[in-house]
Measured scan of single mutants.
Amino acid sequence: TGIVNVSSSLNVRSSASTSSKVIGSLSGNTKVTIVGEEGAFYKIEYKGSHGYVAAEYI
Rank of each mutant, 00 (worst) to 15 (best):
S49E: 09
S15A: 13
I23R: 02
S15E: 15
E45G: 04
S20H: 05
K31C: 13
A40N: 12
T1F: 15
V6M: 08
V22Y: 05
L10Y: 03
I34W: 04
S25N: 09
V32R: 00
E45R: 08
V53H: 00
G28M: 11
Y57P: 02
I34V: 06
V4N: 04
N5Q: 08
V32C: 04
S27M: 13
S20I: 03
I3P: 03
G36Q: 06
F41Y: 09
E45K: 10
K43Q: 06
V35S: 04
N11T: 13
V22I: 14
K21Y: 08
V35T: 07
N29K: 10
S19L: 10
S7Y: 09
S49A: 13
V4I: 08
Y46H: 04
G24V: 03
S7F: 09
I34M: 03
E38K: 06
S19T: 14
Y57W: 08
S27F: 10
I23S: 02
S20G: 14
S19V: 09
E45T: 08
Y42N: 01
I34R: 00
V35D: 02
E37K: 15
A40K: 10
S49H: 10
F41W: 13
V53F: 03
I34E: 01
Y57N: 08
V53D: 00
F41S: 03
G2H: 07
I3E: 05
S14E: 15
I58G: 01
K31D: 05
S19Y: 10
E45F: 08
T18I: 13
S25I: 15
N5E: 06
V4A: 05
V22R: 04
S17I: 05
A54P: 15
V53C: 03
E37A: 13
A55W: 06
S15H: 14
R13M: 15
S7G: 11
I23C: 05
S25Y: 14
S9N: 10
I23K: 03
S20P: 01
A54H: 10
T33N: 10
K21S: 12
R13P: 02
G48Y: 05
G39T: 03
K21V: 11
S14N: 09
K43G: 01
S15R: 09
G36K: 06
A54S: 10
V53P: 00
S25T: 15
I23L: 09
V6P: 07
S15P: 02
Y46P: 00
Y46K: 00
G24N: 01
E38F: 10
H50G: 04
T18Q: 12
A16K: 03
K43P: 01
S49K: 11
G48D: 09
S19C: 12
G28S: 12
N5P: 04
R13Y: 15
L26K: 00
K43T: 03
S15W: 08
S27H: 11
G39I: 04
V35C: 08
A54K: 14
K31T: 12
S8G: 15
G48A: 06
I44A: 00
S15Q: 13
V6G: 10
Y52E: 01
G48V: 03
N29F: 13
G24R: 01
Y42I: 06
T30N: 06
V53G: 02
S9W: 13
S8M: 11
A55Q: 13
F41P: 00
V4T: 07
I58A: 01
S20V: 04
E56P: 05
S25H: 14
G36I: 04
K47I: 06
V6W: 07
I34D: 00
E37H: 14
T18E: 13
E56N: 08
S14M: 13
V35A: 05
V35G: 02
E37V: 15
F41E: 01
G2L: 07
V32P: 01
K31M: 13
E38L: 07
V35H: 04
Y57L: 07
G39N: 09
V53N: 01
V4G: 04
K47V: 05
G24I: 03
K43R: 09
T33G: 03
T1M: 11
G2P: 04
K21N: 11
S17P: 01
V6S: 12
G36T: 05
E37Y: 13
T18G: 11
V35F: 06
S7K: 12
N11D: 15
S25M: 14
Y46T: 00
T18N: 13
S27N: 11
I34N: 01
E37I: 15
G39S: 05
S14D: 13
Y46A: 00
V32H: 01
V12W: 02
N11Q: 14
G48S: 07
T30H: 07
N5D: 07
T1N: 09
G36N: 06
V4R: 03
S15T: 10
T1V: 14
K31R: 13
F41K: 01
S27R: 14
S14T: 08
S19N: 12
N5W: 10
V22W: 06
S9E: 11
R13L: 15
K31W: 13
Y42E: 01
T33Y: 10
L26R: 00
S17Y: 06
T1E: 11
A16I: 05
V53Y: 02
S14K: 12
G24T: 02
V6A: 10
E37F: 13
V12M: 01
T18H: 15
Y46D: 00
Y42A: 03
S25Q: 14
T30C: 11
A40C: 12
A40H: 09
I3R: 09
I58S: 01
I44G: 00
G51R: 01
K43Y: 05
K43C: 09
H50S: 07
T18F: 15
V4M: 04
S19R: 09
A55C: 12
I58Y: 03
I23T: 03
E38Q: 08
I44S: 00
F41V: 02
G36C: 08
Y46Q: 01
E45H: 08
Y46M: 02
N11P: 15
V12F: 01
K43F: 04
Y52P: 00
V53Q: 00
S17M: 07
F41R: 00
V6Y: 07
N29R: 09
S27G: 10
G28F: 14
S20T: 06
V32I: 08
V22T: 06
G51I: 02
S9I: 11
L26F: 04
S19G: 10
R13Q: 14
I58C: 03
I23H: 01
L26D: 01
S49P: 01
S9Y: 13
V6E: 06
K21W: 08
G48I: 03
Y46C: 03
S25G: 06
S27Y: 09
T30W: 07
I58E: 01
N11F: 14
A16G: 06
I3W: 15
L10A: 11
T33W: 11
T33E: 07
H50N: 05
V32D: 00
G48R: 04
S27W: 10
R13N: 11
Y57K: 07
Y46S: 00
A40D: 12
A40Q: 11
G2A: 07
G36W: 05
F41A: 02
S8P: 12
G39E: 05
G51N: 01
K47T: 04
H50T: 10
S8H: 15
S15G: 13
S8N: 10
I34L: 05
L10H: 03
A54E: 15
I44Q: 01
T33S: 08
I44P: 01
V32F: 04
A16H: 04
I34S: 00
I44K: 00
G39H: 05
V4C: 07
L26H: 02
L26P: 00
G24F: 07
S49I: 11
T18S: 13
S15K: 11
G51K: 02
I3A: 06
E56C: 10
R13D: 03
S20A: 13
K31N: 08
E38Y: 10
G39D: 07
Y42H: 02
T33Q: 09
L10G: 03
F41T: 02
I3S: 06
E56W: 07
V22P: 05
N11S: 14
A55H: 07
S7T: 12
Y42S: 02
V53A: 04
H50E: 07
I44C: 05
S9T: 13
L10R: 02
S8C: 15
T18C: 15
A16E: 03
G2Y: 09
A55P: 02
V22N: 04
A40Y: 08
G2K: 06
G39L: 05
L10P: 07
S19E: 13
K43I: 13
N11V: 15
